[in-house]
């Protein structure tokens, strides 16, 4: 099954999760998601998700100058974002266990 379809619904959750501990700029976030096993995640999707979470008030951003090349815009999660992360995690867990249950029944 093509995981990119599944990913679309949970990319918000994934992005908030990898920003939970450390702030990161766009490409940082892409790398963390891939390092976490989401190999198929598209660069542009991550950048778009960051913009959406930012516009929804769940992330704040700040620019760090770089001597060579363009400046990097770091995103950090704020209280609203953390609340959403906690809430989404519960939703995901119950959803996953529901689906797991369904799949067990099928296998049995």
């Amino acid at each position: 099954m093509d995981t990119s379809q599944l990913l679309k619904g949970v990319l918000d959750l994934a992005v908030l999760a990898v920003l939970r501990k450390d702030d990161g700029y766009g490409y940082d976030v892409v790398r963390r998601l891939r390092a976490g096993g989401l190999n198929d995640v598209g660069d542009a999707s991550v950048y778009g998700t960051l913009r959406r979470l930012y516009n929804a008030g769940m992330l704040t951003s700040y620019v760090v100058p770089s001597e060579e090349g363009p400046h990097r815009k770091y995103y950090s999660i704020n209280e609203t974002g953390r609340a959403r992360l906690a809430e989404s995690r519960e939703t995901w867990r119950s959803f996953a266990s529901t689906l797991n249950g369904l799949l067990e029944e099928v296998a049995a």
């Binding site: 700029y25 766009g26 490409y27 660069d43 542009a44 950048y47 960051l50 913009r51 930012y54 620019v63 770089s66 090349g69 363009p70 400046h71 990097r72 815009k73």
Partner: peptide, 28 residues
């Protein structure tokens, strides 16, 4: 705002590119 993200992204990617690789091959 978008271009700020993307400029840094494309600039960083372009340093990782191989000899005959283009940005389009990596990002579409």
């Amino acid at each position: 705002e978008i271009m700020e993200d993307v400029e840094a992204h494309v600039a960083e990617l372009s340093t990782e590119l191989g000899e005959n690789e283009t940005i389009e091959q990596r990002l579409g």
